[in-house]
């Protein structure tokens, strides 16, 4: 991961902690909903935290193609540029 990706990964990990009840170890390839066994509402709540932290909108439509932490990093990077 680049420094920028690592920085986003660390922040996403921090924001995800309140939803990570099973304390699953987070890696770039971790599938957020599946590996953490969290429901769709929790995923949307997590995304809302990400939006607020990075001051960006992440439309829900993006989420159908966003599964892993790495996917989420890409979403944040892409939307930072817009």
């Amino acid at each position: 991961m680049t420094d920028d990706e690592q920085e986003i990964f660390d922040k996403l990990s921090e924001l995800l902690q309140p939803f990570n009840e099973k304390q699953v170890e987070l890696k770039p390839q971790t599938e957020i909903a599946v590996d953490l066994a969290i429901d769709s509402v929790s995923v949307m709540d997590f995304v809302m935290e990400v939006e607020d932290h990075f001051d960006m909108d992440i439309p829900l439509n993006v989420l159908s193609d966003t599964h892993t932490m790495k996917d989420m990093i890409s979403v944040v990077q892409a939307r930072k540029k817009t």
Binding site: M44, M48, L60, N61
Partner: peptide, 10 residues
């Protein structure tokens, strides 16, 4: 909302 195909912001 999903069916509409619109961009969705919560």
């Amino acid at each position: 909302c999903t069916l509409s195909g619109a961009q969705l912001v919560r």
